[in-house]
Design a protein around this nucleic acid. Structure first.
Lengths: 336, 336
DNA sequence: AAATATTATGGGAACGCTCCCAATTTTATG
DNA sequence: CATAAAATTGGGAGCGTTCCCATAATATTT
């Protein structure tokens, strides 16, 4: 039951701990035969490296924090997968925290991770304006941050991995216009997110370009839940505002909206064409399937992980932004 | 930039490290005034406890593994929330791994967690027959396991937290029968899961009891994805098997089936009534909303966390099973 | 054959923390 | 006032690794 240590191995093999350690770490200053012997004994006796001791020695915890706003959508877990793909083989542990779109909770999570002595944090923020001080504090403490998807403004010197929201929003909008839609509603995300603003800008520009822009068609939403999407469309319909298309900030909002329409017998896409941003299975799990802009989420995680490793290895390295290409997936919610 | 240690604090305060440590750990053998002084200095100088050192000293890593089959559904993340609710305040880190319903991958994840020196593992298994040896090996090594939802057979001496699948399957089936359905299909999960069998048993018993049992209505599915549910119903319909109700093993299967029906113009619930097992937002995100048995997932996580703590504290403690109550949620997929 | 370079091993300090065991001071007790 | 008991502090070992610095053994060069 007692754990086998390097010392135990050394005693068993009549070698020094140094030599045993060398064998275990694949050091070159060791005879290949003794290395083989050590490895054999390690296996036989069931030696397991004590990572706490190693961490202490190396001065690194080998823990990386992963901070996300929600996990009801597979969005974060797809990114997480990418992150783990890169970090797990290197012996890094990933610690996940979820804040439910609550900045206060995000704050607590970050503090918790600090307590956990993480070597770095990969984060998708939930409110651009709220936790700036903590971000800065962590950076000052030497804990590198890498943001993905929802990123903070430029005043923070961090690396980011993201997509061009303006560009892809325009792309989706052009598609909806192509479908002959003129009264396209925008369910806009909270203005506290850069992404909301960028996507809204894409919406506006395309509407404007085609001379069909109408501010009454933009409805701003407080939360990002399913219910918020529902409520948004209910509000519009209660106001008897007429529309033939919807471009929603996220898939959750879109699906909420979609359900409200279906409940009220509105045909999709015949009467209303819908498009959104997603990147997850969610878009294909609803009926009709949701057209959406799909960022390469797993890759996003991988890139974020690589950036954080870069920063851990060398803290003076320059921060950089990685822009990823997304895909416009046209499904039955927008075209017959 | 250099981290402040206990030694630094001691030097700064002209105290011994012992005293400083005592203050930090809230030891009673210390004068309240010195404790106050130490805490003040710690705050001022930005002392952060090195958890690796503490772990080394205590002989525990304070890492708990969380092993789940999937994360596209919010199922696991709801359980995870419960787990974290209990463990984070106690300074435990939770390390998440996902195996995508692949036993081999689950195996690798468990080995990885072993490598990470976790103090215990909370797991929802993906195949009852496959990784028994690893489970046993981990237990033998003194790493306690606690299973939730999908649990192994009795030969493994572990604690479990689960619901009575047979009972709730019967419950849901009675409801469907109450709706006047007679030709109820069962989309049965893989037989490698006890849950599949138990729910199937509930289905059979109710069908039998009402004299409407027909083995042709049971369709066994290989995977647990969305597409598998679709395929199952497609197969039935291609065979021109008539049915007026569906009881599916999980919400994902149900939703796949539902979409196939909708694509083919079948009215739900008018022509086909549907019910399933869920416990997540997924059931309310689709249209029509899915009737389902809802286990208290967050509580499941909390209980699992408490069980693992119990085991960590005292490894000789008896294993026990905790049965939780679920709720039968009737929604529009099954009743008008 | 002597000198140097190379290879393989051992000894032991250090990482930061906790906690046992004194040592000292203060307080209570007879 | 002497003695015991309690309260407070300090010294320092040890948790399991790694790695620097010897030392010893072998190989290579003059």
């Amino acid at each position: 039951m007692k754990r086998i240590t390097v010392k135990d191995l050394a005693k068993h093999l009549l070698l020094s701990t140094s030599t045993v350690s060398r064998a275990l770490l694949n050091d070159k200053n060791i005879h290949w035969e003794t290395k083989k012997k050590v490895l054999a004994a390690a296996k036989e006796l069931g030696y397991k490296r004590n990572s706490a001791a190693a961490s202490l020695k190396y001065g690194q915890s080998k823990n990386i924090g992963f901070v996300v706003p929600e996990m009801v959508t597979p969005f974060s877990s797809k990114v997480l997968r990418g992150v783990q793909e890169v970090l797990y083989p290197l012996g890094y542990r990933v610690i996940v925290t979820v804040c439910d779109e609550d900045p206060q909770r995000e704050r607590e999570n970050l503090l918790l991770l600090e307590e956990f002595n993480v070597d770095g944090i990969i984060i998708n923020l939930c409110d651009e304006s709220k936790n700036h001080d903590i971000y800065q504090q962590l950076i000052d403490q030497g804990i590198p941050l890498v943001f993905f998807d929802r990123t903070p403004n430029e005043s923070l010197n961090v690396s980011k991995v993201l997509i061009d929201n303006f560009f892809y929003a325009s792309d989706m909008m052009e598609h909806l216009v192509d479908q002959g839609r003129k009264k396209i509603v925008h369910i806009m995300g909270p203005p506290s997110l850069r992404n909301s603003q960028d996507r809204a800008k894409g919406y506006e520009e395309v509407m404007d370009k085609h001379g069909i822009y109408d501010p009454a068609l933009i409805i701003e939403v407080e939360g990002l839940g399913f219910e918020d999407g529902k409520k948004a469309i209910k509000t519009l319909m209660d106001q008897k505002i007429d529309f033939d298309g919807i471009f929603a900030f996220t898939d959750t909002l879109a699906i909420g909206a979609m359900n409200y329409l279906l409940e009220n017998g509105v045909k999709i896409p015949n009467e209303v064409s819908m498009g959104s941003f997603s990147g997850t299975e969610l878009a294909t799990m609803v009926y009709p399937q949701l057209s959406s802009v799909e960022p390469p989420l797993e890759q996003m995680g991988e890139e974020a992980a690589r950036l954080i490793l870069e920063k851990i290895k060398n803290s003076d390295i320059d921060c950089r932004d990685i822009f990823l290409k997304a895909e416009l997936k046209i499904r039955s919610s927008s075209s017959l």
